[in-house]
């Protein structure tokens, strides 16, 4: 513990003031207020305490159940695909292909693009009448589908968009991990007669395990916060097939003005996200002796 003196204390607090004013006002206070709202029937004008009624209602709200289930499916499928495909992309791109710089740029391009723009691109691709996918299917004499309008396909379509947008990010994180693997490991393995595939699965894969875990948690947290593409592309339709937790927060809060009820959903979301982040934090700490 370093010694502190009075003058430094004051300087420090003074210099931290601008940040903490915004931080407390727009992050910490709202988080607590959200907790408070979740026990009230807040509707933007009045808020009276109604105890755990909102949470009791969550248990019976079939739309929220649907949203919760959709979010979990969305998260699990996206995370599995991104963790796996991101790894393959990074590991295979690393093998000195010509134009690798351009490929990397191409793959990160959708990640830099806004979700609003990405949603527009895929609305065009999926459109049943004028969309490219159905036109192409018709062209090779296959029947087009209703994609975003088909309850059994819509969620899958959104998941695909998510994978398409984020694969470049996952690849980047993996690439950094792979580049830090000592070259000697590969040389030794080659001397022992290991082929390319063996080296990929016996050296690269185990060595990037911590990176894979990081990718898994970040994409999982991200998936649980899914809202924009739902609001823009489907509005949760058809028949709530694509509604998510955050979409329900938005609908209850800003369409129905049941902000107390929406806050109880936010509490659920916060608990999930904090749990995921905590697990990530603990497992990382366990793997590292040095603490920053």
């Amino acid at each position: 513990m370093q010694k502190t003196n009075k003058k430094d204390n004051w300087t420090a607090y003074l210099m931290l003031t601008p940040f903490f004013v915004f931080f407390l006002l727009f992050v910490i206070y709202p988080a607590f207020q959200n907790l408070f709202f979740s026990f009230t029937n807040y509707n933007l004008d009045t808020a009276s305490w109604i105890g755990v009624k909102n949470f009791a209602r969550l248990f019976e709200d079939t739309t929220f159940h649907k949203a919760f289930k959709n979010t979990c499916v969305y998260a699990c499928v996206s995370v599995f695909a991104l963790t796996f495909l991101g790894f393959l992309a990074a590991a295979l791109l690393n093998k000195g292909i010509r134009g690798v710089k351009w490929l990397r740029l191409l793959l990160i391009f959708p990640y830099a693009t806004s979700m609003a723009a990405v949603s527009m691109i895929w609305l065009m691709m999926y459109d049943p009448n004028n969309g490219f996918i159905n036109k192409a299917l018709n062209f090779i004499s296959l029947r087009g589908r209703d994609w975003l309008f088909d309850p059994s396909l819509a969620l899958g379509c959104l998941i695909f968009v998510n994978i398409w947008k984020n694969i470049g990010y996952c690849m980047l994180i993996y690439l950094a991990g792979i580049n830090s693997i000592p070259e000697e490991l590969y040389e030794a393995a080659t001397v022992d007669g290991a082929g390319e595939a063996t080296r990929l699965f016996k050296i690269t894969l185990p060595m990037v395990k911590p990176v894979a875990f990081f990718v898994l948690v970040t994409t999982m947290v991200d998936a649980f916060k899914t809202f924009e593409q739902v609001q823009i592309m489907t509005r949760g339709d058809p028949m709530n097939a694509t509604t998510t937790i955050v979409h329900q927060i938005y609908v209850s809060g800003f369409n129905d003005f049941k902000m107390g009820y929406a806050s109880s959903m936010s509490v659920v979301l916060l608990l999930i996200v904090m749990l995921l982040t905590y697990v990530n934090f603990r497992l990382n700490r366990a793997g590292e002796s040095e603490v920053g």
Binding site: F23, L25, F26, V27, I28, Y29, P30, A31, Q33, N34, F37, Y42, L44, V221, K225, F227, V246, I249, Y250, G253, M259, A262, S263, S266, V267, L269, L270, V273, M274, T277, Y278
Partner: peptide
Amino acid sequence: ALILLGMMIPTQVTLIPVFSL
């Protein structure tokens, strides 16, 4: 530690309170 905690709070969770603020 409080700042690190702040990193965990999604903006989606604070959407309604910030709106009301």
